[in-house]
Structure formats: C-alpha cells, structure tokens
Write a protein that binds this DNA or RNA. Structure first.
Lengths: 271, 271
DNA sequence: GAGTGGTCTAGACCACCTC
DNA sequence: AGGTGGTCTAGACCACTCC
C-alpha cells in the first residue's frame, strides 16, 4: 500500500541517461560535432559527473562517442567495416593486403601462442609487428609469430632487427603452401604498448583476432591482431558482395533513424 | 631538475592493481574459487573501493573474473570456444545446430536490419528468437528476421505466436538454396531483454554477430546474435582441425603460466 | 538478516591539449 | 593559462542471494 503500481525494476540512472543521450545524438547532433563538457552535461541532467561518465562509457563502448583527453567528447562516425578474411586467402604480406610491416625481432613466443603453434615454449620465433591502416587511421596492430623451423631458408641477418627483416620473414612465408587458416575473435583490453599505436588509453576495449596459419598439416605461423573495438566492425565476407551497410548501433539494432538534423546552439534538453 | 629520472608515465593505480590481481589469479587461485569481497580487497590494497572496482571491471572484461550480485567474485574458467561458421554451411535450424528455437512473432524489422535485407522498413517479417546453449549455459541469443516474401509457402497460422510458428519458419527457410552468408562481428552492450536470458546485467559487453543469408542473389534472411563477451571466444574454423586451444588471456597473450596451485586461506599479499 | 556486488554522490587532483 | 577528460576518494544507499 503506497506504491502506486509495480515500480518493478527501478532503472539505473546511468542507463536511462544513456538512452536519453543516445536519442539526442540521433536527433540533435552531427557526426564529429563536439558535445558539452562532462561537468556541464552532469549539471544539466542533475547527476554526479561519475554517473554521467558511466553513461558516456557505454556509448563509447557502442561506438557512438569518442572521447579524447584535453579535447572533448565528439559524436563518432559509424564503425568501419574491416575485412578479416577469408576473402584474401593468402599469407600475411600479400601484395594487396592492408597491413604495413613494422619492426621484427627474434624472441620466444608467449606460452599461449607456443601452444597454438604446437611448438615448445622456448623455441625461438621471428616476431613481426604490423599495423593496419584504414582511412588514414590505425585500426589494428598485430604480432605475427613465425617459428624458425617454418622459414628455414631465411638468410642469416641476425642483428638486422628492422623492418627489412620483417619483410624478409614475410617473403619466406610466401614460399610455403597455405592449406588453411583458423581464426578466433574475442574481447580484450589493449595493453600499454599497443595503446599508443592505436591512439587509445591502456585498457580500451579491443577485438583480439587470433589466426593460425596451416601449411602441410602443421601450424606454420600464428598472428594475434588487436582491433579497436570502438571504431571497427569485423567483416567475414563469403562469396557475396556487400551493399550499403548502415552500421547497426548498439547490440540488437532497434529502429535507428540517425537522421542528421542541422545543429544549432543550446540543445540537449533536460528531462 | 629535481626529478630523479624520467618518471615518465605514472601508471594509474587501477592499472597496476589489475596486473597485481591478474598475477595473483594465476598463482594463488583455482578456477571457480571465490575472492575476498570488494571492501576487504580495497582495504587490503589501500585504495578506495571504486578504484578496486575499476581493476575488477577490466579483469571481468578480459574473462578472468565473474561477478554476481549477492554472491561474490569468482575466478572464471577459460572462455568457451563457440563455433560461428562457416563450418556448418547451412540455414539456421539445421538438424545439428546448437540453437534452440523460441518464440516467433510477426513484426517489422528495425531500420538497420531492413537495410541489410534490402527491403522496405515497413515490410512485415517473421522474427524468430533463438537461444544458444553451451555446457548448460546460455551463451547467446538471436533474433532471426525472415521477410514474408522469402517464405511464401508458409501456411497461414497468424495468431500462433509460439515456438511452433518459429519452427515452421525455419522449416520453410530450409527449402531455399543457400548461396552464401556474410558475417560481421562488433562490440555491443546487452539490452535489458537479452540481459536476463544471458544471466547478465544490462550493459554487459557482448559480441554482436550479424549474418546475412543469401539465396539466389537476394538476402533471404538476417540474424543478429549477441554472444556473452566475457565467456565466449568466437571461432571461425576452416578446413583445419582444432588442437587444444589454451585460451589466450587478455589482448596479446604474453607469457601466461596459469598454473593451478593449491589454494589455502589468507593469501593475496599486499604490495 | 547478513553479506555481496551495483549504483550514486560531491568533491579533489592529475594529465593532456589548445590557445 | 584555461579547459578537457581521466583518476581517485570516502562515504551512502540499494538490489540481490543465501541462510
């Protein structure tokens, strides 16, 4: 007695805030437009900044917003669709691939990778770092692990730890016959070293794509690629051509107008 | 002058905490074991609870921990590898698939899905809800959208909005010839309705797999599946058999012992 | 009812970018 | 120097689970 009705599940404030902001983004903002700052938004909605930030975090996770320290919060463009095979049924470094070869060094593979390779954890491998660019932005970094035994023909150039070495490794890899590849995708958080290359803070969500390259029945190489989860949509094309894909937003896309109305000055109404 | 050295980047507390906890998880805890509660952990590390929670959030995102309200925080098992074609080159509802057909109803597809279907946004579609189980746990929910024009042979059973109707839709789908399918994977956050089915709170991170099924040159159906990102590793097998995959943990797996030492009582040392 | 994780507050300071 | 987002604190209350 007293409760007007079944108030049922009191929706968390930040959750409600998120949907309000999401709607405002659709109706009142242009892509690339900069939002009012967090302190102002929090005040306007009558919540603590931490609560507002919880909502913004969600929206950033869904690729709707982009936040940069010292700059501000902007409305993010729809996610890129980046192709992740098996379209290009080739080895890394195929002439047409989207990757840019970087440093290479001789190390020992991390335990998990060694297990995937089916090699001992202490067997030396070539590790080649690569970066993938799209629209002028780095969207992924990769570490490619190639056991010495996979590329026995590689000329000795031990101390040449530069990009030349990386290209040499890729070249040798191409001499092998590729039987197939196997991929897994999972969620991770970017480590400090990758973070800088991807222009994100450590801990930002990434999609980790692990690929096992098989040649003549054995795993010849393993690559671990980390894609920015906020800006990327991984596509696995097969046979079919892609039409205009209007980036589903959030989880299960529900009626999403995303009309671009002219943006003037003081909108984003409260309540 | 004055700084002893390049103190460079003062690592955030929660970031350092995360690595400390991560190491402790490897060395001092068993899978399924329950951690001390948050207030205790925070006190033990001399930080505010919010800071500790930031570290725990990261670890949960990486699939290392599982937190349940009212229960506690437990050490998560390695992620499941769930197959996401194109191994089973078939229509949804193939006799051997891992999905469990649920409710079906007649609706109109959300805008983004309608665009993928290449149909008008107001054309009626059958929407079939399905659930994917693995190891007795629900790992994904799906909404399958089938335009009426794709299954003209479907007998009239308008008001039969149950699972029988869903099965009928799938049955009709099988009569079509499948030319190919096209998938995309992206990060999302689970909506309220899916959340309950996946036993997660709203907003939890999910991997959204959107599949376009093509028959005779046109898109015959579109499915949107949301997988729990904390417990799932999506696998895209091709030709190759899978060995024992020891779940890379975090982004780029670095030397990960994950040895299971006997767990006693009051460890998890500070500093 | 006791104990857990989830939400929220009102403040403070820091790191970074831009002017 | 001033403004932005990022980190951190010390508290409070709530929703949930289990006994």
């Amino acid at each position: 007695m007293g409760t007007t009705q079944l108030d049922a599940v009191p929706e968390p404030k930040y959750w409600h805030l998120k949907t309000v902001l999401s709607d405002a983004l659709d109706s009142e903002f242009e892509v690339g437009e900069i939002l009012p700052n967090e302190r102002e938004l929090a005040a306007r909605f009558g919540v603590a900044r931490a609560t507002l930030r919880q909502a913004l975090e969600q929206l950033e996770l869904e690729g709707r917003l982009q936040r940069r320290r010292g700059v501000g919060t902007t409305v993010a463009p729809p996610r890129f669709g980046v192709d992740v095979g098996p379209g290009e049924q080739g080895w890394p470094g195929a002439p047409d691939d989207a990757w840019q070869t970087g440093e290479s060094e001789e190390t020992t593979a991390p335990a998990a990778v060694a297990a995937l390779l089916g090699r001992d954890a202490d067997e030396p491998v070539h590790s080649v770092r690569r970066t993938r660019m799209t629209h002028g932005q780095p969207v992924a970094t990769e570490l490619l692990y190639v056991p010495h035994s996979s590329v026995p023909g590689l000329p000795a150039m031990d101390s040449t730890g530069g990009t030349a070495r990386g290209r040499a490794v890729l070249r040798e890899l191409h001499r092998l016959e590729l039987d197939g590849q196997e991929r897994t995708v999972e969620l991770g958080s970017v480590r400090a070293d990758d973070a800088r290359q991807l222009d994100r803070l450590p801990g930002a969500p990434v999609l980790v794509v692990t690929t096992r390259y098989v040649s003549q029945g054995v795993t010849a190489a393993v690559s671990v690629s980390t894609y920015r989860a906020d800006t990327c949509r991984l596509t696995f094309g097969e046979k079919v051509r892609e039409p205009v894909v209007p980036a589903p937003e959030g989880p299960a896309p529900e009626a999403a107008p995303r009309r671009h109305r002219a943006a003037t000055a003081g909108r984003l109404s409260h309540r």
